[in-house]
Simulated assay, not measured.
Amino acid sequence: MKKIGLLAAGGIAAIVLISNLGSLIGLAISLILLYLVLKQFLKADSTFKKIAWGVLGFIILLSAAGNIPALVGLVGAAVLYLVYKKWNETRSFNIKEDNDPFDSFEKQWAELKKY
């Protein structure tokens, strides 16, 4: 039953991711361009160049803001990753190891109590 729920959640997350793929690509391109404009803005010497790079950066920032639905796609990708991790998860049982330091502590404490 758990696998059916994971399959349903993974399918919905995949559909959300695919439907927002265009806005994800647009957001990535806008952020890369914004980073490049910021680097040029910081290197600019004159006030005119700083104003020009600032205006261009503002336009690109508005373009990136137009791709806000990409955040829904990113959430879909995260859910898809979590479903993948849960699907391939192996069950582990708590097996008590012989190297537990507290076992020897209990033995030594019992020996000290005898005296």
Rank of each mutant, 00 (worst) to 15 (best):
V16W: 01
I12E: 03
A65D: 02
S19K: 11
Q108R: 14
K43S: 12
I51Q: 06
N94K: 13
K107Y: 06
F48S: 12
Q108W: 11
V79Q: 01
P101L: 01
G54F: 01
A44P: 04
F41C: 02
D98C: 02
R91S: 13
A110C: 00
K2D: 11
L7Y: 08
I18S: 09
F105D: 07
A44K: 04
G73N: 04
L36G: 03
I59C: 05
N67A: 13
W109C: 04
I95E: 14
Y35V: 12
L80A: 11
V75R: 04
L56G: 06
G76C: 02
G5W: 08
K3V: 09
L34E: 07
I4F: 05
L34H: 03
A70Q: 03
I18R: 06
A9V: 07
L31I: 07
K50T: 00
W109K: 14
I4E: 11
V75G: 06
W87Y: 14
L62I: 08
N94P: 09
I12M: 07
V37W: 06
G76Q: 02
K50W: 00
K85C: 04
L42P: 00
L7P: 00
L56D: 01
A8V: 15
L21W: 14
S30M: 00
G54Q: 03
A77V: 01
K2G: 09
Q40C: 03
S92R: 12
D45P: 02
P69L: 02
L27C: 00
G73V: 03
I59M: 08
G76E: 01
E106L: 14
W53P: 01
N67F: 08
K2N: 10
L36T: 08
P69M: 05
A28S: 13
W87I: 13
G73K: 05
A64L: 01
I59R: 01
I25D: 07
N99P: 01
